[in-house]
């Protein structure tokens, strides 16, 4: 105690306190600061590859610097990709939605143009522009070991957040203006996870604050349970509900019965014979 009070007016005391402050601050920063895009030197080549691919295949809409192209009326020709993250690129390019075949209300899923390596390069390039959601790892979305409780929880989360657009069995549904929620069953769990993370097209973003990674995983667990489930009670008729059921009642049921009725009536009595 005595030494502290003696030395606190030492000429170097101020410098020492300042140093201490800087070390603590720096240490805290390195622990707490948001991780920047993984742009360390090993990725440099990949980023460069991605940029070359980007300039050829994407820049015509998204701009040379991936910051979007604005139209004269204020609309966007192609949106800015700064900050969308690698997950968005992996989803859009990996499912064939990008590059667009044409300007339309919504990019449909179609044949994939880029190889996995090229997609990875593009994703790395876009991720290097500004931090954004990274591509989830397999342990994020792997729900093969989900318990019954997790499946039940996933069902509840699905019915609360997703089925309003995607339908209770993930058969998809209509949205306004020609947009739609695509069918989900049969989609690679990675893309399901990425879709929740990045909110492609008309879909809202379900970031980790809205649905934490565990909840996302349980949704995938429920979808996989649905997929593996046998079609109890026969052909599912697309999962579209009473519309296809009514169609089946009229076309199959009434069709068959009227055909039989015609057959029975065809051997009718004729008064003149």
């Amino acid at each position: 105690m005595r030494s502290l009070s003696t030395h606190r007016r030492h000429p170097l005391a101020g410098v020492l306190v300042l140093l201490l402050g800087l070390v603590v601050l720096g240490g805290l920063y390195s622990v707490l600061a948001p991780r920047s895009a993984e742009a360390d030197s090993t990725d440099e080549a990949l980023i460069d590859d991605g940029r070359q691919l980007f300039l050829v295949g994407c820049a015509s809409c998204h701009g040379l610097n991936a910051d979007g192209i604005e139209q004269q009326d204020g609309g966007q020709y192609g949106p800015s990709l700064v900050g969308v993250g690698a997950a968005a690129v992996d989803f859009q390019v990996g499912t064939g939605r990008m590059p667009l075949a044409q300007n339309s209300q919504q990019a449909p899923e179609k044949a994939v143009i880029y190889t996995d390596d090229e997609t990875a390069a593009l994703a790395t390039y876009v991720a290097s522009l500004s931090p954004g959601p990274a591509i989830p790892t397999e342990e994020d979305y792997d729900a093969s070991d989900a318990s019954r409780e997790e499946v039940v929880e996933g069902r509840e989360t699905w019915l609360t957040n997703c089925s309003a657009c995607h339908n209770s069995v993930g058969a998809g549904g209509a949205l306004g203006d020609g947009r739609y929620a695509p069918p989900v069953l049969g989609t690679d769990p990675k893309y399901v996870y990425e879709a929740m993370l990045t909110g492609p097209q008309s879909m809202p973003v379900f970031n980790d604050a809205l649905l934490d990674p565990e909840e996302k995983r349980t949704i995938i667990a429920y979808l996989e349970t649905l997929e593996a489930e046998p079609q109890y009670g026969g052909a599912g008729l697309g999962g579209f509900g009473p519309v296809t059921e009514g169609l089946a009642a009229w076309l199959v049921g009434m069709g068959a019965l009227v055909a039989v009725a015609t057959w029975i009536g065809a051997t009718a009595v004729r008064a003149r014979q």
């Binding site: 069902r155 019915l159 609360t160 089925s163 309003a164 657009c165 995607h166 339908n167 209770s168 069995v169 058969a171 998809g172 549904g173 209509a174 929620a181 649905l226 079609q231 109890y232 009670g233 026969g234 052909a235 599912g236 008729l237 999962g239 579209f240 509900g241 009473p242 519309v243 059921e245 009514g246 089946a248 009642a249 009229w250 199959v252 049921g253």
Partner: peptide
């Protein structure tokens, strides 16, 4: 038809919960 075609698969809809809804909610024909 009862044996071959699913009709009203109530288990995929779950119990009624006013906070939930599913796309393709329709009445019978």
């Amino acid at each position: 038809m009862g044996a071959l075609f699913q009709i009203n698969p109530v288990w995929v809809f779950g119990p009624y919960n006013p906070s939930q809804v599913t796309a393709g909610s329709q009445p019978d024909f």
